[in-house]
């Protein structure tokens, strides 16, 4: 009995070790998605169509294939304060106005890069 328990535990641990980097990346992505969809956080669906989200608005463009057009820093900058690129934009300055923390913006960018 004890030995079987031990093997099971060891197996589980082993799996964990192997899967860790992938799992971590996935959890950042899903955390980013959660933050992007949460109405009291990013609430990005208010303006953007995003894969996996319901009732999107149409003020901004559909968010897709972002990796082809923007590197990570550019996406962070857009979230931080899009008015620097376009002074008239309707998009809120999430970083500048502290709607989202740096960490939250990073998680959302992880998610954006999968779109």
């Amino acid at each position: 009995m004890p030995s079987r328990l031990f093997t099971k535990t060891a197996l589980a641990l082993g799996l964990c070790l192997v899967a860790a980097p992938v799992a971590q990346a996935q959890s950042a992505v899903s955390e980013g998605q959660r933050l992007a969809f949460d109405r009291s956080k990013g609430n990005c669906l208010t303006c953007h169509q995003i894969k996996g989200g319901d009732l999107p608005g149409s003020i901004g463009p559909k968010l897709e294939n972002l990796k082809l057009r923007y590197d990570r820093n550019e996406l962070v900058a857009i979230l931080n304060d899009e008015t620097t690129r376009n002074p008239q934009t309707a998009m809120p300055p999430f970083g500048r106005n502290r709607i989202l923390t740096e960490q939250e913006i990073n998680a959302i960018v992880d998610f954006l890069q999968t779109l």
Partner: peptide, 21 residues
């Protein structure tokens, strides 16, 4: 406001667009 909108952001720049539903 924290979201940095003017009345015009919504009712001049974006009438006819959907904000959510």
């Amino acid at each position: 406001g924290q979201l940095n909108f003017s009345c015009a952001s919504c009712h001049v720049q974006n009438p006819g667009e959907r904000i959510r539903a």
